[in-house]
Design a protein around this nucleic acid. Sequence first.
DNA 1: TTGTAAGCGTTATCAT
DNA 2: ATGATAACGCTTACAA
Lengths: 368, 368
Amino acid sequence: MFHVTIRKYQGGKYGRNMEGCIMPEITIKDIAKQCGVGISTVSRAINNHPDINPETKNMIMDVIKATGFVPNNSARNLKRIDAKSIAVLVKGITNPLFSDMIKVIEEETQKKKYSLVLKHVEYYEDEVDVALELVKEKRLRGIIFLGGYFLHSQEKIENLRVPYIFSTIGTAVPENISRVLYSSIAVDDRKESYAMTAHLIGLGHRNIAILSAESEINSIGQLRLEGYKDALSEAGIAFNERLVRQVEDDIEHYSMENGYITAKKLVESGEKFTAVFATADILAVGACRALLEAGMRIPEDVSVAGYDGIDVGKYYNPAITTVRQPVKDMAKTTIKLLFDIIAGRKSYEHIVFPAELIVRESTGTAKG
Amino acid sequence: MFHVTIRKYQGGKYGRNMEGCIMPEITIKDIAKQCGVGISTVSRAINNHPDINPETKNMIMDVIKATGFVPNNSARNLKRIDAKSIAVLVKGITNPLFSDMIKVIEEETQKKKYSLVLKHVEYYEDEVDVALELVKEKRLRGIIFLGGYFLHSQEKIENLRVPYIFSTIGTAVPENISRVLYSSIAVDDRKESYAMTAHLIGLGHRNIAILSAESEINSIGQLRLEGYKDALSEAGIAFNERLVRQVEDDIEHYSMENGYITAKKLVESGEKFTAVFATADILAVGACRALLEAGMRIPEDVSVAGYDGIDVGKYYNPAITTVRQPVKDMAKTTIKLLFDIIAGRKSYEHIVFPAELIVRESTGTAKG
DNA sequence: TTGTAAGCGTTATCAT
DNA sequence: ATGATAACGCTTACAA
């Protein structure tokens, strides 16, 4: 590590003087004074109001540019009754599916001349609390929740007096809240997980290990585990508890590293299996590596299946069989629904999208 | 797509009544009235000020909980002179390196009892404009820029009167701005790229293709290309323009898909090569897939090297040789430096971190 | 077309 | 310990 330059802070440069006191920011008032006009005229210039003399406006804009004045958004939001904006609250920014959804939502929001507030919510934060604050602060017209568990009290969520939609990619839809209070866009995790497991069974697999990431009831992880059990029992295969492997709790649940560690432990446990169903592609990648390192060939010795349909599964070697969630369609529907509700064309809606089973190179007929 | 439930919006539920008019939000005034106290007392209760009767406070807090009152942040920010908060402006949220950096920055910020504003900047947005707004709105004490190009005017950036740091992971440090105005934390892209290329040359490779993602001068992509040229000329290998492959411009530059397409085109071009240096791991993954599909073995027939040190390279099959950027250390140094500047212990600093060449399975001696 | 003034919902400064 | 009241920086009637 090379320190190229160091110099002591001299003060005055950073909006605080030598004593650490805050220097006054430049305001609309200063601009008005400097232009010799009233503040409302400046305001009109900024917000390009129709009734203002173009010359006056130009003059003001020049001064604004020269001084580098930027209006204070807090003051604006405070005063403005209507901001034409919506927010996306993202819990777990790591999820690669979210990026795609956000991109779509951004585009559609812009088309509607709305502005989008994107807010990242920490794992330990309560997303409804954050939403509550944001609604007041930014005068939001609607909210989309991406990620999180949603076991919130109906009482609390009722305070959120704008339309909100839960997008169930990595989000368990609240079971404890009246369904007329909210909207949701989801994939039937249990059903799709069932489909994948059934596919594996159809390939002749009997000992299918499953890598599961959550134990909370109604969580995505549990739902996918249920689907796995459904397929097993339908095929008359006894459920073997030892083939259910929970990922490590002390590192990021949905990560390649966790898939690797968990699969490695599975191998070392000595339990017999001919297929591994990782309930997320990102886990599948790590799992593949662990299996490969253990000297197993995929899919000749062991089949590996994922879930989600993220890019990496397609480019991995071998390409990983997966359940693709139609994220773009879901995002489009989500944003359309939100604007429908805002416009009063609908009240709420619960939509379930079908996922797509994509068979790639990582799954094959059971050995022996 | 199954529509489970549809009902017409009845109004009244969402902070707007039937006519679409906004319903008044509950304010501190309402709480004061309902509690039979003055508003300043409520304010004291909310901000747990010392001089308030515990009983009064409890009573007020009960009412607040019951009514679901949430203070308006815009009003708070407007009035508050000092917020003890800093911001991270992220351009290109897709970069997996950023997540790690942000995590570290978040932790350290919390330790200092500061709050962190995380702001996602669109590709087409000017990050300095966004920063300027945010500084006023949130009374920020400092800013960290992650991603972006930074060819900003000194004039404009001088208006940013809080300390700011450019973290050069996916960011080209501004060359056109006086170095005393800002701080930077970086890896020497040219040098590290040189090192990787030299490693490949040491393995006997002479025809090394390079996958490059940007053509802007001083961009990360260009710097890495320069390093490649440096190594070539040092080894007395003639530079072959046809081995330099720019990624597709109309899709996301740094993506597996783009690595795949670009490598595929390289193969189809018929140009001879025994190694591919992808200037980002994410490109390397796509490139590997394309090479594999073309029937080449890695590293027996062709070596592949990446850059960045992201997780996927470690778990890919084969594991990808890379230049690891010490993101966590860099993040730690970044946040420490920012707080040093805020506290007046330093003025500015330019720090260059060494990267680490990690040789994995994807590179080997040149064929033939 | 322009200026004046009344808020927006807080916090901070006074008195009390 | 508590309550008025004046800002904070802006938008928006309303008046000119």
